[in-house]
Design a protein around this nucleic acid. Structure first.
Lengths: 347, 347
DNA sequence: GCGTACAATGCAATCGATTACACCACGACG
DNA sequence: CGTCGTGGTGTAATCGATTGCATTGTACGC
């Protein structure tokens, strides 16, 4: 009907209602108290023309886009969608929307999205990607728009960070295993250099040390934070005859790889060996045995990131000092961990 | 340094370079042939002020946002991220970006995003959500902006659709099972009313019929397209003592639920019963046994959707007639299917 | 009955870009 | 030597909204 190409503008509405654009704008914004007939005429015109105010024009005039940029490491990594959904929910609730960018583990793409979002004049940015150069971190920290970093910890850059308490999380994991009687254990690391890797191993080792387990009883393996890394590392471990009674993994995907390797080698979980992961992705409860893991509170973090941005926005520049917020992780016990066997893997 | 709040505008650049805004615009756009000194002065000012043209202002003036809207059923469903990534890649390659909305299975949210994207004046929309009302479908079809529907088939609405060949895909699945000697089989359906459900069962039954298997040899179970649905349906099936040698599932998540139920009941896969899924999500190759499935070409579909939008854009209104494009599915044989046992499940 | 206060609305500038058109200067050509 | 063409820039309108200020109309008080 009125779909004659270009959408109706505020002038079209004004003309049809016989008023000025200013009045239309005020009526729609609920400002002032227009005469009933005026308001009615405007609303009638709005409906008749199927008028929807252009967010583009409004953004230009208001110098606000009501949009937050969100850059994630990889949307295909099951960790992120939940974060994205939570952030989006929180943002939508207060009239904001999220412009998403998935860096796909590529630093150049991350930079591309940074630029894109700057060009788009987003009102704030959430960077949930560790694949960002130091230069970009500094650029972000100096940026006039509020920035919140999630699950990454740029060194020596004053910037607001929300991150899982990786150290404390893996401490929980170690305590859980130790409590089940495990003493000789393996730890499959993630990729070196990835932000969470270091604190997680450290937390694990610290809890073991506290339990009186000699550091040499913990063997470190190298994964790559992916399925294959866990599978390969654990397969080699078993074949080399190392006898441990528990394996902690940098994340769930790695742990699921470990489960598969153990299965292939005929090692029973948790009867012979316990396995624990980290993150708590959906697949953790799908696999057999279901995976005991330390859960990141992803939804919580997404929500917090948005709230923090909003707070920074109405506090104005320099209103809120950069801080690092550590969100606790929570132990999620499932089937893959159990009491340490009295003998070793190979009786 | 120059981060004094508001970003530099084209006027700032013009002033500093001692030229008019028109010249700045032309230099940056590479239009006309400015004198070398002019161009140099402009570029110097751009660098000095760290000028980035406002996409907002440009969008208003050009009446194009260089943005496509993409609405998915649920970003947390592992099926979608790959689609999103592919669409984003394709779009980015030609200077477009993607505004994402996840309906989270909620029709109201879907409508919200439809509105949002209309307000944002996206240049085109990809709707990959089946949770959309008939009214919205009609609205979309009548919309002045190009729309491509992915994996949904609105009835009686002239609109461009790109969808997996669900019927053909499940035919492949059936043929695979029949080829392995299976004759008595179960089919776990998805949610009734969900778009893909009907064609998938039909395809499955059609292939069975073609192989001379009586319809009564195929028992239909009710799932809900989720993990629990598959788990519950198959657990009941086994307990009721029905003897089938293969189970086909509406999708992978359901199939993974089925695997878990079978494991719990002590049924060996694929020795006693074969299981086949549909979609090919990442977790399909993680589970033990890894899941044979019929893969949807998600990346391909994301790419196609964007290409189609672009084609519609430069063909203008009514330039390209709505069509339904069926993307073939491909059989992905893994460990969960094998030859039909000679005896039944219960010897 | 007239000045004043206030309510309702209109006028026009503004946000930051693009681009049609006007303009100037200079070289070539008749 | 005058005119025309053209290369290089500037001027100003435009995109569609918001909003400070001016203007109009109405009611009220004295």
């Amino acid at each position: 009907m009125s779909d004659r190409g270009a959408p109706a503008t505020i002038r079209d509405v004004a003309r049809r209602a016989g008023v000025s654009t200013a009045t239309v704008s005020r009526v729609l914004a609920g400002i002032g108290n227009p005469r009933t007939e005026t308001a009615d005429a405007v609303m009638a015109a709005v409906v008749a023309l199927d008028y929807r105010p252009s967010a583009v024009a409004r953004s230009l005039r208001m110098r606000r886009t009501n949009t937050f940029g969100l850059i994630v490491t990889d949307i295909q990594n099951p960790f992120f969608p939940e974060l994205v959904q939570a952030a989006d929910d929180a943002a939508r609730g207060v009239g904001y929307s999220i412009l998403l960018g998935s860096a796909a583990y590529d630093e150049h793409r991350a930079v591309h999205y940074l630029d894109l979002m700057a060009d788009r004049r987003v009102d704030g940015m959430i960077v949930a990607s560790s694949r960002v150069s130091d230069e970009s971190w500094r650029w972000l920290a100096a940026s006039p728009v509020p920035v919140v970093v999630v699950n990454a910890e740029p060194a020596n850059v004053p910037i607001t960070v929300i991150t899982s308490d990786n150290r404390g999380g893996m401490q929980l994991a170690a305590e859980h295993l130790v409590g089940l009687g495990h003493r000789r254990m393996a730890y499959v690391r993630g990729e070196e250099g990835i932000t969470a890797d270091q604190p997680r191993v450290e937390g694990f080792r610290a809890a073991c040390r506290a339990a009186g387990i000699p550091a040499s009883d913990i063997v470190e393996l190298h994964g790559n934070a992916q399925f294959e890394g866990g599978e390969r590392a654990v397969a080699e471990l078993v074949r080399s005859g190392l006898d441990v009674t528990a394996i902690a993994c940098h994340n769930d995907i790695t742990a699921i790889g470990a489960l598969r390797a153990l299965r292939a080698e005929g090692v029973r979980v948790p009867h012979d060996v316990s396995v624990i992961g980290c993150d708590d992705i959906a697949a953790a409860s799908w696999v057999v045995p279901s995976l005991t893991t330390v859960a990141q509170q992803k939804a919580e973090m997404g929500r917090m990131a948005v709230e923090r941005l909003l707070a920074m926005l109405d506090a104005g520049v320099g209103g809120i000092a950069p801080a690092t917020i550590r969100v606790p992780m929570v132990l999620q016990v499932r089937e893959s961990t159990g009491p340490a066997p009295t003998g070793g893997v190979r009786p």
